[in-house]
Design a protein around this nucleic acid. Structure first.
Length: 581
RNA sequence: UGGGAUGUAGCCAAGCGGUAAGGCACGGGACUUUGACUCCCGCAUUCGCAGGUUCAAAUCCUGCCAUCCCAGCCA
């Protein structure tokens, strides 16, 4: 499994090398957007970073699992480096020890590698630079651009003002720098309890931008950090730390989502006032949102913790580990992100587009197989009881080089229950008394009737085969509209199949005023215990999954499949234009 | 008169003064040993609204409207 995943990763074009610029997506779409344009200017002739190579970073906080929204950021961060021939770092933004955990670090790395991106030796933690940050904090104090404040959290909140009213200055705002320096050093030495002091930047309490009203840049937290242990009891805040991290890593462009637009003036303030080795620039883009699901970490966590789904990798979730388990390919996800484009318009993308990207990928590559999800017996009444024959079919029709497998055929078969109707509506060209259909790759048969139980439920469909149509070839001049998938009852293998639908019944559960419990789709997962598949799927493990013909794309559930129990997840349905009259 | 941003089709999205790309979705047709795939065709007389500038405006100007983000010692 792991090897196959690595193989796939290696096959993916566009693993970041930092050498060859790439101007198109690997599916041939042109990549161009406002951030790329801006970076080209910054780096180009006359630009502020003329001559430099682009250097980005993906900076998750290790406090949860990555989801498809992060995939967009990853594609932008790593993709920008790829497109422009630069580098992209992976950085754990771990400036708040109370929220973070090493376990998330591993999961995040796995997900990014799975997507096919590589940070090579450039894996960092914000905490790698705590010493430098401390140095720069003292620099601000020396420049009288920061001061140690004694306001309580409540006092800070009250004096900050409101959206429409300016704040009032802290009584400690003009504390002599010597005094601030002394207290700050003692803060670091651990002399004070949590909350006793903070270090604040001295900017502008009357600014319309609340982020500039003397933001706290260091707080005391006697908390063990997953990287630095007990080395520190003061920790820097995001707005102070981020530009320093970027500069220390050599990042030229700090790409982030729209909600940080308000923070850019603060980012720029830090860049202007600290003696950083380089001067990174920040640009913002709109997050990716998808309908019929939730993307907020809080909601995802609630679903998991309340047991409404079976863990972070429940295939109904939009997390990358869930999508992986569901059968989504890295290629499909990347393609989806790239084709959605990059803009500043807050958008909600249709889940159908994601599904389309998956189908487009799998259609080309996933082996075909037959499976019967809701079986009913089909008896070929003119086929000898003791006879069996085999047919050989391509794994990918028309591409014998992709491998072949055999099907066995006998008198007793299994077909899909909804492929027979005793009294069908118009334009139904499957089995009904008197009608002819093709059993794919086998024979053309004519339905002669059915057998029902006492309740009137069909328990067996009867048909006669035409021996002259071996292989499914119609007689000269005859046209057979319907082709069905089928299984030989004698060799078919039983499996559990899980069908997935949207987790929520409304497009935007995040915006809905109702409690999200009411919005959950009761049919988000349908488990079929009595499904049957071709026997070779017992041993075969395609990392792409399979197309179960006429049904959709399915993949072994890598967690629940055991040597004696097959479990399949439906990744996505096939398109279906059948409309009963 | 708090600050910042955004409005192009049902959903994304190009467009950057010369007369509305593309994709998804949807509808119709052809083909078909998957009602799949593929291939055709259709799908904004109009770019949030109203004025103005111009021979010419989605693009420039003015005003208005709508939506989103910001008041953590979170990121």
């Amino acid at each position: 499994m792991k090897e196959k995943r690595e193989q796939e990763t290696k096959r993916l074009p566009g693993v970041v090398t930092g050498i060859t610029p790439r101007e198109e997506t690997f599916t041939g779409n042109k990549i161009s957007h406002f951030i790329l344009d801006a970076i080209r200017q910054d780096l180009g002739p006359g630009g502020p970073m003329e001559g430099r190579k682009v250097h980005t970073r993906f900076p998750p906080e290790p406090n949860g699992f990555l989801h498809i929204g992060h995939a967009k950021a990853i594609v932008i961060d790593f993709g920008t480096a790829e497109i422009l021939g630069g580098l992209c770092n992976l950085r754990m933004d771990d400036t708040n020890p109370v929220k973070e955990d090493e376990a998330y670090v591993r999961a995040i790395k796995e997900d990014i590698h799975w997507l096919g991106y590589d940070w090579e030796d450039r894996f960092y933690h914000a905490s790698d630079f705590f010493e430098e940050m401390y140095f720069f904090a003292e620099e601000l104090i020396e420049k009288e651009l920061a001061f140690v404040c004694e306001q309580t959290p409540e006092e800070v909140r009250e004096s900050r003002g409101t959206l429409t009213k300016p704040g009032t200055e802290s009584p400690w705002r003009y504390r002599p720098k010597e005094e601030s320096l002394d207290i700050f050093r003692r803060m670091r030495a651990g002399e004070f309890p949590d909350g006793r002091y903070t270090l604040r930047a001295r900017i502008d309490m009357a600014s319309g931008n609340i982020n500039l009203r003397d933001p706290v840049i260091y707080r005391i937290q006697h908390e063990s950090h997953h990287q630095t242990g007990d080395d520190w009891c003061i920790y820097p805040m995001y707005d102070f730390a981020h530009p320093i991290e970027d500069a220390m890593e050599g990042v030229t462009h700090s790409l982030c989502s729209l909600e940080f637009e308000d923070h850019r003036p603060l980012f720029d303030w830090m860049v202007a006032n600290l003696s950083l080795p380089t001067k990174p620039k920040q640009y913002e883009f709109a997050r990716l949102d998808i309908n019929y699901t939730v993307m907020s970490k809080r909601k995802l966590r609630a679903l998991v913790e309340e047991g409404l789904v079976d863990g972070w990798d429940d295939p109904r979730l939009p997390t990358l580990s869930a999508l992986r388990r569901r059968g989504y390919t890295p290629r499909a996800i990347r393609d989806f992100c790239e084709r959605n484009g990059v803009s500043k318009v807050p958008s909600m993308v249709d889940i159908k587009f994601l599904e389309h990207c998956l189908r487009e990928d799998l259609n080309l590559r996933a082996p075909r197989a037959m499976a019967v999800l809701d079986p009913v017996k089909l008896t070929i009444t003119n086929y000898p009881e003791d006879q069996t024959e085999t047919f050989t079919v391509d794994n990918l029709p028309g591409q014998p080089e992709a491998g072949r497998h055999t099907l066995s055929f006998s008198r007793h078969l299994l077909i899909e229950r909804d492929d027979f109707m005793e009294d069908p509506p118009g334009r139904y060209y499957r089995l009904f008394p008197g009608n002819q259909v093709r059993l794919r790759a086998a024979y053309i048969i004519r339905c002669t009737g059915c057998v029902k139980d006492e309740e009137g439920r069909v328990i067996e469909v009867l048909a006669e085969y035409d021996p002259e149509t071996r292989g499914g070839t119609a007689r000269e001049g005859e046209k057979i509209r319907g082709t069905l998938h089928w299984l030989d009852q004698a060799t078919a293998v039983q499996a559990e199949v899980r069908l997935y639908n949207n987790l929520f019944t409304v497009e935007a559960p995040d915006d809905d005023e109702r409690d999200y419990h009411e919005l959950l789709n009761p049919d988000s997962r349908i488990t079929l215990e009595n499904a049957w598949v071709e026997p070779w799927l017992q041993e075969d493990r395609s990392h792409l999954g399979y197309q179960f013909m006429r049904l959709g794309y399915f993949i072994h559930d890598h967690k629940d499949t055991t040597p004696d129990r097959l479990v399949f997840n439906r990744s996505v349905k096939l398109r279906d234009s059948y409309r009963p009259e």
